[in-house]
Write a protein that binds this DNA or RNA. Sequence first.
DNA 1: AGAAGGACCAGTGGTCCGTA
DNA 2: AGAAGGACCAGTGGTCCGTA
Lengths: 279, 279
Amino acid sequence: PDSGALDALSQEGLSEERIQQEREAVGSGGEAWEGQKQREKGSCRQLTGSSIKKKKKTKKKPAAPASKDDNNVVNEGEEDEDDDDNDEDDRSGGTGAAGERQREHPFIVTEPGEVARGKKNGLDYLFHLYDQCREFLLQVQNLARERGHKCPTKVTNQVFRYAKEAGASYINKPKMRHYVHCYALHCLDEEASNALRRAFKEKGENVGAWRQACYQPLVAMSARHGWDVDALFNSHPRLAIWYVPTKLRQLCHLSRSTAAAAAATGSSAHGLPAVPYLF
Amino acid sequence: PDSGALDALSQEGLSEERIQQEREAVGSGGEAWEGQKQREKGSCRQLTGSSIKKKKKTKKKPAAPASKDDNNVVNEGEEDEDDDDNDEDDRSGGTGAAGERQREHPFIVTEPGEVARGKKNGLDYLFHLYDQCREFLLQVQNLARERGHKCPTKVTNQVFRYAKEAGASYINKPKMRHYVHCYALHCLDEEASNALRRAFKEKGENVGAWRQACYQPLVAMSARHGWDVDALFNSHPRLAIWYVPTKLRQLCHLSRSTAAAAAATGSSAHGLPAVPYLF
DNA sequence: AGAAGGACCAGTGGTCCGTA
DNA sequence: AGAAGGACCAGTGGTCCGTA
């Protein structure tokens, strides 16, 4: 009694046509983000036509001798110069002509609203990437629901793959995972996040140092959530779609243990857990 | 600023001692379930001492010539006959002496409360296995929280591994996944589930036929949840820890499409979605 | 034949480390 | 040196199919 319609349905096999559909469903990526945050000039189009804004070509250095990685480079021959800006050199990512640079510019510590100069990207752009991933997740979720597939609640490999297929080649898993906790602070306490950015910029610290410094305020916040980082992440809708980074989870756990030990010894003189030597 | 305590913590390396702890943390399994459901005579002990009730030995057939599978057989030499029952032959699972039978008795369709006779297991026992898995999950969750690891919300491979380490060798993933939707019906509409069991027993149907028949009422229920099976599963706490089976998800999806098509054609004469030919 | 479950497999979460 | 990300790897979800 299980055959017929049911079995046919089990073999839905739409692997390839599906990818093409998806490819057409999403709009342009980081390229569109020229430093002017909040403009939202159409990044991440919703499930409509096939008008993907393709990257413009630039004339950067021809780079290393044609290596094995060259097949990573996007080189579809689409040209449209209808855009509002021709300043190639200080754009966020910048994909070049045939077989050229693929890496994004490194991040530098910028103040809120500040546009990074030179071949650098600023932190507003970094956080924008997280919002873009969220858009991609929403689209993946919509497709999954339409098709009766299981529906991801987090930014999974599938979402990163989808982003890449949609042309957002500047989004990748290692990068996004690396800075999740920085984005978390930005979501959960924008004031504190902004202050930290200003302080680290002023001190001339590099991105790595700023990134490290983002842990501490989050551990303190988790303490106020009973050291439950998962609950903390879930308390913010844009953050809840990201996996809690292992290191942050460990720090919160260690902080809890330490606070408990201190409380047992009676050595805690303050109201809030004081484990500053961890940082 | 990231070294010291933090790095030490990254290397927690407690892989082996951990397994031993876990092994001691859980009580006996299906063996304890002799047909008398609801007695709860101590199956699944909580995180206390090391008093695991080991299986008693029986004298079954020496089975096939020592094959490659023989290393699957539980043969720890522990003997304790302090139990309340010596009826070896109609117990639920029954693990034998050194290198003997390993498979559980097959299920038969039983009425609620009915004990299976002969080398068979009844459906109350089947559902009891799901409750046992839930206990194992709860223990895995507690351990994860204590250790600051990420905490599973579903019955994962880790939980099945834990159950096996705890001596519940009669629990395995393929079996549990196979009957999840039957358990779902039992949770969500015990009356309907009981009626179905009685009907299929009376008709002399086998387990496979009963299992197939469990889909339809669930699809109907999902329709009342807007065909959202995930929501349906999540509406019941004991069910929410189980992944929605692929086939049930597909059936609900197909049912929705069919109902939508029927509605568009105006061909639906009844209030509820009628796609009986699917079954 | 009907059924239980070992064992496999494609794709995951996680992040290292060769690269620029 | 500091940083971006290809690519690897252990363990996952899912279930087939050799077994009894």
